[in-house]
Amino acid sequence: MPRALPYLLLLPASLFLLVFFFYPFGLVVVESLTRGGEWTTENFTRMTAHWKFSQAFWNTVWLAAIVVPVQLIMALTMASVVQKLKTGRSGLLYIFAIPLGISDLAAGLIWLAIFEQSGFLNSILHGLGVIDRPQLFLGYQSLWVIFLAVCLAEIWRATAIMMVIIVAGMGLIPKEYNEAAEVFGASRWQRFTKVTLPLLRPSLQTALILRILMAFEVFAVVVALGGTTLPVLMGETFQWQFQLQDRGIAAAYAMVILGLSVAFSLVVLRLLHVPKGARI
């Protein structure tokens, strides 16, 4: 009986996941591959044929490609600094973690309040005499500004989650490795690249996968800052599901996001693989 007990205790949660996650997930898969009750790939061909698809696809990929590495570098830098602190460490962690408590839509709205025509940025520039009338920063003529604003909002919002994971990971590395590297001639940078980073691989895996998944699901921030001017995959899924009422194509979009997430997660797992016996 004691041997079965842990499984019994996990049973409700497992059932819950099976019923409310995998079942709807299965439905979406079926939805994406059927049309009018027939098995078909038509949803996918119609999705890719639409002029917005490749824009949405590449916007999403580019956002992830820019935001995630920038966040990784920032999170590593911040974590290294936090790691060195003797006092006030937890206080700083709390401050850094504040954006984590804000929903992505709220984050988008905060940055909208900065960039919009009557926003803070316009007020400041006007106050400084740089401009004589409010500028339209987030218009469809200047897509790159919207793109940049989304990048900023995403970096502001979600760097902390990576940092928290990395700080925890750095805390697990015994100090002696760094000291040994120091005694055996490694400079500060070499200690970081040759000791800290390799030993941090498990944490980097977690942080990167979590962050990449979030990046492919970017939605509310984009909607708040650009409406549908800057199409992204998740936005298109929403559009097809609710505006255009085509659940088949919406399901196909969802499958594309899933495919990207799985593919990149596998790449991260592969690149940051730690051989057996090489763990701390």
């Binding site: 002696e176 490795y177 000291e179 040994a180 120091e182 001639g185 030993l199 090489a278």
Partner: peptide
């Protein structure tokens, strides 16, 4: 001087053999 300029080598109590190498 930093440790690496002192001409020393050290053996640590917990060995500090790098696990990733």
């Amino acid at each position: 001087l930093p440790p690496r300029e002192r001409g020393i080598a050290m053996v640590f109590q917990n060995y500090a053999v790098f696990p990733h190498l």
